[in-house]
């Protein structure tokens, strides 16, 4: 935080790979840049799905183990239910101009945010830089993440 009380930097960690696990972090990152706040966006564990080219636009809402959906677990597990709920949610998001994941990442990157993938997860899942969308600036370890985050706030999602 600066002397005038204004937040100057946020480092946002996205660790989950469901649609509802990824979007809050993306919206906060984009919103921070809109306010002129410096942003690091760090993807780790299943959150990496949001920057993997083949998967980024196929994220789904978790319809099992998600009590806030107000849907019985036995229905949530039926084939097609997760896809249906995901399609409904995407439609509503589009109405308020929330973009698909690939377009959103492009906007966030164009807005000047830095985008990183977690080294440990990349190794664990045997991924390479080619698996990621072009907006990914680097694959970094946790030490480097803390270096970059120094002097700002860290948000874990």
């Amino acid at each position: 935080m600066s002397d005038n009380g204004k937040l100057e930097k946020v480092s946002i960690i996205i660790s989950k790979g469901s649609l509802e696990g990824v979007y809050p972090g993306l919206i906060m990152a984009n919103g921070a840049r809109m306010e002129g706040i410096e942003v690091n966006l760090f993807f780790t564990f299943f959150g990496l799905d949001a920057i993997i080219k083949k998967r980024m636009n196929k994220l789904k809402v978790a319809t099992v183990g998600n009590p806030a959906l107000h849907m019985p677990t036995l229905i949530g597990m039926l084939p097609g239910v997760s896809s249906f709920v995901t399609a409904m949610m995407k439609k509503e998001m589009d109405k308020i101009d929330i973009p698909p994941v690939d377009e959103f990442l492009e906007m966030i990157s164009d807005a000047g945010a830095k985008i990183y993938a977690c080294r440990a997860t990349v190794d664990m899942f045997h991924l390479t830089k080619d698996d990621f969308c072009e907006q990914v600036d680097d694959i970094i370890n946790v030490g480097k993440f803390y270096e970059l985050a120094a002097g700002g706030e860290i948000i874990f999602t």
């Binding site: 840049r33 101009d97 973009p99 377009e103 492009e106 906007m107 164009d110 807005a111 000047g112």
Partner: peptide, 21 residues
Amino acid sequence: TIRRLKNAGGIPTKELYALFP
């Protein structure tokens, strides 16, 4: 929104941030 400026207004996000820092 910034997205609308980009998609309907033809103003790339990068340029928008450069014009209005």
